[in-house]
């Protein structure tokens, strides 16, 4: 146990964290590019057209990974906020600070790609559906967190207030995820993140999983790059 604690405190020390990032950053970038290339090639050129939607369903290969990332970035931020509030670990605050604009962009892109998919399939770019509305609220939460960070001049106070607001905003995450189950929505129900096997053909599922991994690695690479900058200050 003391050995584990020592290893943990070594990892969260700025010097070792920067060293860890330098060591793995390139590997993460290469893995990200491989996943995205595989996903794009198979998703756009090899996977067959959908029998109902035709080719337009291929927007799924950017829309679904972005939607998953918009939620998982917020989960990471909430965990970091919790760790920062309880143990006052500065790196956790840095990760939360870096993640907020990335998450906001992912969420805005989720809504954009969703509307690009909605127009040819539903006949409208936007509808006040539970899933779409809760995702829009998520963008506003991200923007509020970024605004609070820059509005408060005292850095320590800004970090604490942002952590509390992040934890309060986390209530929206299960609402976004379960909105399609709790309410009768135009947006389809879950096809991958659900109990039982995914209801999607394997040839369409593989590139989607590769894209999800690619977008996660892209987020990881961005966090590593910006964290290294923050640590060198």
């Amino acid at each position: 146990m003391p050995h584990r604690t020592a290893a943990f405190s070594k990892l969260i020390s700025p010097k070792h964290c920067a060293h860890f990032i330098s060591r793995y950053q390139k590997i993460v970038l290469i893995a990200c590019m491989i996943c995205l290339l595989y996903g794009l090639i198979v998703g756009l050129f090899i996977a067959p057209a959908d029998y109902q939607q035709g080719n337009v369903y291929r927007i799924m290969y950017v829309h679904v990974p972005l939607a998953i990332q918009s939620l998982s970035v917020y989960v990471v931020m909430s965990l970091c906020a919790f760790i920062f509030l309880i143990w006052k670990i500065k790196i956790a605050d840095f990760v939360a600070k870096i993640s907020a604009p990335i998450g906001a962009v992912f969420t805005a892109l989720t809504l954009f790609t969703g509307s690009m998919w909605g127009k040819p399939t539903w006949g409208t770019y936007w509808i006040w559906d539970a899933r779409l509305t809760s995702e829009l609220i998520l963008v506003f939460i991200y923007i509020a967190i970024i605004a609070i960070r820059y509005a408060i001049i005292d850095d320590r106070l800004a970090s604490r207030v942002c952590a509390v607001v992040t934890l309060l905003g986390a209530i929206n995450i299960p609402i976004v995820h379960y909105s399609v189950i709790w309410w009768n929505t135009l947006h389809q129900g879950p096809s991958i993140l659900k109990i039982g096997a995914p209801s999607i053909a394997p040839i369409m599922l593989h590139p989607l999983l590769a894209m999800i991994a690619g977008f996660f690695l892209y987020y990881l690479f961005l966090v590593m790059t910006e964290l290294k900058t923050e640590l060198s200050r």
Partner: peptide, 30 residues
């Protein structure tokens, strides 16, 4: 087809801009 092109080009353009900003910030500090 137009919707796929618009969606993919906007997403990847934003991602590349985001990446350039992060790398620029890093190089400015080094």
């Amino acid at each position: 087809m137009i919707f796929i092109c618009v969606a993919y080009s906007v997403v990847f353009a934003v991602m590349i801009i985001q990446l350039i900003f992060a790398l620029k910030k890093k190089s400015r500090h080094e």
